[in-house]
Design a protein around this nucleic acid. Structure first.
Lengths: 331, 331
DNA sequence: TTGAAAGCGCTAACAG
DNA sequence: CTGTTAGCGCTTTCAA
């Protein structure tokens, strides 16, 4: 690999001057500047990230930590971030926490070795202690999907999303309603939304589990549903809201195997609006993923380049996308 | 950030000794060794990648360059690689070529700055000249999905996959057959497979396009199909093989909009067996993605750690997964 | 406006 | 078995 010194010698200037024209850190006589540029092109000088990072104490690496890259929702996010980073001259170190808090902690520790310029993370626990390491090391962080009091972040208003679905179910005449998924913000919104409409959401109809990894999701969904069915003989609800679209697909799959028809016997709605829900015509709540990713990246850049330090929380409003799986009116 | 010297001082040894216990590069008296380890734990020493990489001239970074991370086929691959890398102490720099040769070239140049320990790439063009830079810089490369004469690689035998589908269509009695997608190896296998069964695959029924990015895929598929329909009034085939599952979904979508029923009016088969095809019950050819990714990573590790330099090409056999979209027999 | 020189934190001879 | 020392390629004072 050709280095600055090689360029310097060939351009008959000092290595410091080469550094200056590359980084624009101080004025260089246009002639020498051009000469250096020519030699750089001629020799195909590329630079050495390690050396640069070591002496400048900062890198052009952005760490991206996501809970489940196999979920299209997150791969779409990564896709947007990667391209933005590419266009602005950063590289992405990607890490997949797989819904595993222990792994996420390790990942955070590992990434510190690289002095990343910034971090984009969809944290499993927005208030986890190990996230504070970024604060201590003065590394800008923007959270995606979840908001943390310590960092800027961009998310969808999940609560509103839950409420939207509550209203949707209500408008279709459902009064016995179920839920399956993480008991998170959207669940809260859903529950409160139903309460405001005087529709009870019975605890025993809320099948909770905590999961991010799509690896064993099918098993998880199937065993949870089996267990539910074992306790009572049949479904005690006519509509079910699932934590996300993938869960919705699995639930529909489960119902299909059991001979339960969607939406004739039961209405199903998901959350996220990943591409594939449209093929299956699943009712869902759309998160503008690309916008979220873009806004998060943009915010991170402002923290990196302009040193903005105030904590900014963006909550984007989701919208309901009614499709076939909730087609049937009960009234 | 706490550094080796800090550890050395507190442990009352030289910095070199700390380096030795960390890297195990030479024997260290068990007592001193333990003392150093204790101090490392106490101080929470993490290390500095840039410094390590600069002085050792190698990094623990593995570059992963994929054509379309939004395609679940590739996100599954990334998921496997990331976890393997995590377990063996490497970090992933992820790059998305988006089916853009120009971008891929730039990515290859960019990654050289990091002296990656190795590269896993699903190249757009296996023989692209810029890939030789890895050879010049002595960086181990393993290709995924496509094989290159210059590097080791793991792929599915796409040709066999195409043949499998040819036989499948034939066994169902189809004689007028179409294709839509990249005119690649699986297309060749498909074509030859049909030829061997004395079924012609007319050129005008082969709708070719070159695409990797799922971004504008819908448009691409729809406009290609529209064009086809404009030229002749109706479909001149009873079964169509699509380049991959996502294309299959879009084609089915298109047919649905046109009121053409699948599989009643036309049979559709995809390729890849991404998770979502099972929900839609699309006939497809399964690529054992996780195995591919795992084998590629394993091979790369052997090149990195053991310096194996021979070129090894693994071709994994795909298998046909018949499902509902090709259910109907014509004979 | 430019060059010389001192590190950045670490690895890897080289002594002893 | 361990300490000393010389860089790795670059950024960044400090002078001139």
């Amino acid at each position: 690999m050709i280095k600055m010194k090689d360029v310097a010698i060939k351009a008959q200037v000092s290595q410091a001057t080469v550094s200056r024209v590359i980084n624009g850190t101080s004025y260089v006589e246009p002639e020498t500047r051009q000469k250096v540029l020519d030699v750089i092109a001629e020799l195909g000088y590329k630079g050495n990230s390690a050396a640069k990072s070591l002496s400048s104490k900062k890198s052009s690496i952005i760490a991206v930590i996501l809970p489940d890259i196999a979920n299209p929702y997150f791969s779409e996010i990564l896709s947007v971030i990667e391209d933005e980073a590419y266009q602005s001259g950063y590289e992405i170190i990607f890490m997949n926490s797989q819904g595993n808090n222990h792994k996420e902690k390790k990942l955070v520790e590992n990434i510190l070795k690289y002095s990343p310029a910034g971090v984009l993370i969809s944290p499993l626990d927005a208030n986890a202690n190990y996230l504070k390491k970024f604060l201590e090391n003065n590394i800008p962080v923007v959270t995606i999907t979840t908001l943390s009091k310590n960092f800027s972040g961009v998310s969808v208003d999940h609560k509103v999303g839950g409420e939207l679905l509550a209203k949707h179910f209500a408008s279709l005449g459902h009064v016995n309603i179920g839920y399956i998924g993480n008991k998170d913000e959207k669940f809260q919104g859903f529950k409160e939304g139903l309460q405001n409409l005087n529709i009870p959401l019975k605890d025993e109809n809320c099948i909770g589990f905590y999961n991010y990894s799509s690896g064993n999701l099918k098993e998880l969904v199937f065993s949870s549903m089996e267990e539910y069915l074992k306790e009572r003989k049949s479904l005690d609800f006519t509509a079910i809201f699932t934590g996300n679209d993938i869960v919705a697909m699995e639930v529909i799959n489960f119902f299909r195997e059991k001979g339960i028809k969607v939406p004739e016997d039961i209405a199903v709605a998901g959350f996220d609006n990943i591409t594939f829900t449209s093929y299956l015509s699943i009712t869902t709540v759309a998160q503008p993923v690309r916008e979220i990713a873009f806004l998060a990246y943009e915010r991170l850049m402002r923290e990196i380049k302009n040193g903005e330090k105030d904590i900014e929380h963006l909550k984007i409003l989701p919208r309901l996308i009614p499709r076939d799986t909730t087609l049937k009116k009960l009234i």
